[in-house]
Design a protein around this nucleic acid. Structure first.
Lengths: 219, 219
DNA sequence: CGTCGAGTTGATTGTTTTCAACTTTGGTGG
DNA sequence: CCACCAAAGTTGAAAACAATCAACTCGACG
């Protein structure tokens, strides 16, 4: 794992900017900024959990793979998101850059002690667990249309770009996140567009034309 | 939420026995023992998270319900399991007794401070998160047969009763946990029996006749 | 301009759900 | 102890949904 991008050698210590909405949970992570190419691994299953990460730009996915190659994307991390803070000593997931991405890498031990940072990290862990539980609800009980609709709404809220979404990930990534195939995701996009709920400008850019109707779909 | 059962007024403080396998993570929870009838609520979505629980006998499920009534069982808690320890201030799930159950109820604040207990609680939280993530993998990527097979294997391991399983929950509970319908669960049981992998003695008692073959099914 | 990868669309298949009927189980009271 | 009842579970047939297989389109990039 490459630890320093060339462009940053003269600025090895870096205070993460408050990218995205300045939520109270935001953490100014002090560490090294690193660039990753698309699909490059950030950490792997089995690794020690002694680093914490924050997305500066681009997007990161955490994945698990079954023996026969079926892949589940567990979570997407967007600019401003802190990820990789865990209780267990070993990683249970692999993290990869979805697209070209810049990530702050901070040694976990460097964060210990500050009660303010501590509190924020725990709140973060709580949110991660909540997201994982919401994911269970989605995968267990929802139809393809509901899955895609709630995914788009969630993305638009997290990206904070109103109703215009620049999708950071491929259809395959979405499919593996939503527990669907790429064809089903594609067809669902087409159907939502045909019903006037979304407008697919080009395959990575969507406008939520009637987001309240999308929300109704999700109940 | 009723906090003390009449039968326990003269024995309000109670040291939980080490039910089930005496794993190192086991916690001797000091609190009040309470009995619950089948389907009785233990805590509800929105409640404060100021109590921690330990199952003495019976079983407990945590559930979330969508607006239209679709229900997702998030987790089953078996004798010896501690549950309800969370980061967030509010419950996001409801906990109910699956069958008649006895549960130790401990005020969370009464546990704070002891570094040994603390460490165990955090390890527990880590395991809960891991289980939730495994659940995502099951619901996202596995067929009905794989879901049922891995569920039975998991149960047999957690109950520690070798290959004989007394199922604490109904088919409906299993279905809502596995993201299937009751009919599909029932059919899958029949198919697994027809293939000789399990023997359904009566509907709540199963023998895993060829557990390695079951494990192969799950990969 | 051609090629390659990503995405879309169509036809078909397979799995799970739905709806419905039937059977088994467990509890209750005669 | 047995008969009856309600609840739980099973099974069958049909329908709905998503997966699969295959062809095609689009767009980026050399």
């Amino acid at each position: 794992m490459q630890l320093q991008s060339a462009s940053l050698t003269h600025a090895p210590r870096f205070v993460a900017p408050n990218v995205g909405a300045a939520v109270p949970d935001d953490i100014k992570l002090i560490g090294v900024a690193k660039g990753f190419a698309a699909d490059q691994e950030i950490f792997a299953e089995g690794d020690a959990t002694d680093f914490v990460y924050k997305v500066v730009s681009g997007a990161v996915r955490t994945v698990r793979v079954l023996a026969d190659g079926r892949r589940q994307v567990c979570e997407f991390h967007l600019p401003g998101d802190v990820f990789g803070f865990e209780f267990a000593a070993e990683r249970r997931q692999t993290a990869e850059a979805v697209s070209e991405a810049v990530v702050i890498v901070a040694r976990r031990s460097s964060l210990a002690g500050d009660p303010d940072i501590d509190a924020r990290l725990w709140r973060l862990a709580a949110r991660d667990l909540a997201r994982s539980q919401d994911h269970v609800l989605t995968l267990g009980r929802r139809s393809a249309a509901e899955r895609v609709a709630s995914f788009l709404l969630d993305l638009s809220q997290r990206l904070g770009t109103h109703d215009e979404i620049d999708l950071p990930m491929s259809r395959q990534d979405m499919a593996d996140y939503l527990g669907l195939t790429i064809e089903t995701v594609s067809r669902t996009f087409s159907q939502l567009q045909a019903s006037g709920l979304i407008e697919v400008r080009c395959c990575r850019h969507v406008r939520l034309a009637r987001s309240s109707a999308l929300a109704d779909l999700c109940e």
